[in-house]
Computed example of a mutant assay.
Amino acid sequence: MSPQQGSQAIGVLPIEVRTTKQAVSRVEFYVDGALVGVGRQAPYRILHDFGTVLAAHEIVAKVYSNNYRDVDSSRVTTIAAGGETLNVDLVEVPMRVRTSQPLASSDIAVKENGIEQTIRELRADRGPARFVFVVDRSLSMGGGKLDAALRAIDEESKLLRSDDRVEIVLFNHNVMPARPLIRGEHVQPSGGTSLRDAVSSVASRDRTYAIVITDGGDRNSMTSEAEALRKISGTKLTLDAIVLGSDSRFLDRAAMNTGGSVVRGSASTLRRELHRMILDINSRYTVVYQSHGNASGWRAIRIDPRRRGVEILNARKGYFAS
């Protein structure tokens, strides 16, 4: 019988029973003593909404056979909490989709560590968010690259919603705290580079889009790559980056984990790339689900289409739950 004994039940889940009985007349499903559904042919399965609050439930399936003369019961009890299994608040996953018609929640399947999740909401717009431009101001960003970055941010941030919060983090070997964007600002390039420290500083429980502009180097960070990835992958942060120099494995992994993207550019193409990036962010879908049935640690997210004509181009790959 599914759900299994001792598991957790939250959201809309299938209740299913398998039987070797012949000539089954009817299967009745009960949750906490109330009849919630009936199955009359195999597979004997119904969908039931266990709600948004995790609680213990008694689930009973009664199998009537032999023209209702025989009845067999199967019973399981789900739990509110146990072992290392835990539930978290609603998980938001920004995703890029190619589709021939408007997308509905029934068009996609979301799995977390292989366990299918219940989609609570699918939004075609991203909603108000915090945008943080993480800008490298190290000496290697001279030669017009830093000036081009600040000019591009001045202009292209106008594409954001009026209710977005727009901030900037400037970093070299030191990382400045996030602060509101000052238009027309001029900054002199100097010092080394602490890229991982800067990205880690943006981690937030609010819906946040971090857009990193850098030449890709990192010579001074105190934060390891693994630690930085863990910090940003356990939040509602999506990281996108424009790299003006050498490739950055750290940024590639950070973008992949959080559902963002990394593009290569130069001082002359930076504004165009930022323009495309913000338009892309503005057009992403957001799928919302309530995680259940998984242990703490890394939770891998997989989103697959359920119908033809839907292609998932990019989505958050997972997050850390603790």
Rank of each mutant, 00 (worst) to 15 (best):
K111A: 10
T99D: 01
A124K: 15
A129W: 06
P94E: 06
I115M: 07
G82L: 07
T99Y: 04
Q101K: 11
Q117K: 01
L90C: 10
I108Q: 00
S100D: 13
R130S: 13
N113G: 04
R123V: 07
I108P: 01
E84F: 12
A109R: 15
G114R: 05
T85E: 13
I115E: 10
L86R: 15
D89A: 14
V97D: 02
R96W: 07
N87Y: 10
T118H: 12
I79A: 02
V93W: 03
Q101M: 10
V132W: 00
G127F: 11
G83V: 09
Q101F: 13
S100A: 14
L122H: 08
T99L: 04
V93A: 05
P94L: 02
E116R: 14
P94W: 06
R130P: 08
P102S: 04
A124Y: 09
N113V: 06
P128Y: 11
S105T: 10
G82A: 12
I79Q: 00
V132C: 00
A104N: 07
I115W: 06
D125Q: 15
N87F: 09
K111I: 01
D107F: 04
R96E: 13
V88I: 05
R96K: 14
D125H: 10
I115L: 14
V97Q: 03
Q101H: 13
G83R: 06
V97N: 03
A129N: 11
E121N: 15
D89T: 15
A124F: 05
V132I: 07
R98S: 08
R120C: 09
I108R: 04
K111M: 08
K111W: 03
K111L: 05
R96C: 04
L103D: 01
A80P: 03
E84V: 13
F131G: 03
V91A: 12
I119C: 02
P128R: 15
T85Q: 08
L90G: 10
R120P: 07
D107S: 07
D125V: 13
E116M: 04
P94Q: 08
R98Q: 11
T118M: 05
V93P: 00
R123A: 14
V110A: 03
E92N: 12
L103M: 00
R98A: 06
I119R: 02
S105A: 15
P102M: 01
N87S: 12
A109V: 11
E84L: 14
R130V: 15
A129V: 12
V110T: 08
D107M: 05
E112D: 07
A80D: 13
F131I: 14
Q101W: 09
P94N: 07
V91W: 06
E116F: 01
E84T: 15
R98I: 00
V97P: 00
E92G: 11
A109Q: 11
E84Y: 13
Q117Y: 00
E112P: 00
A129K: 10
A124H: 10
V88T: 15
G114E: 02
D125W: 05
L122G: 09
A129P: 03
T118A: 15
V93E: 02
R126K: 14
G83D: 11
E121C: 07
A80S: 15
K111Q: 11
D125Y: 07
V97K: 05
R98G: 11
S105M: 12
P94T: 05
R123M: 13
S105Q: 09
E121I: 05
I119S: 04
V97L: 02
R98W: 01
T118F: 14
G83L: 12
R126L: 13
F131R: 01
E116K: 06
V97I: 12
V132K: 01
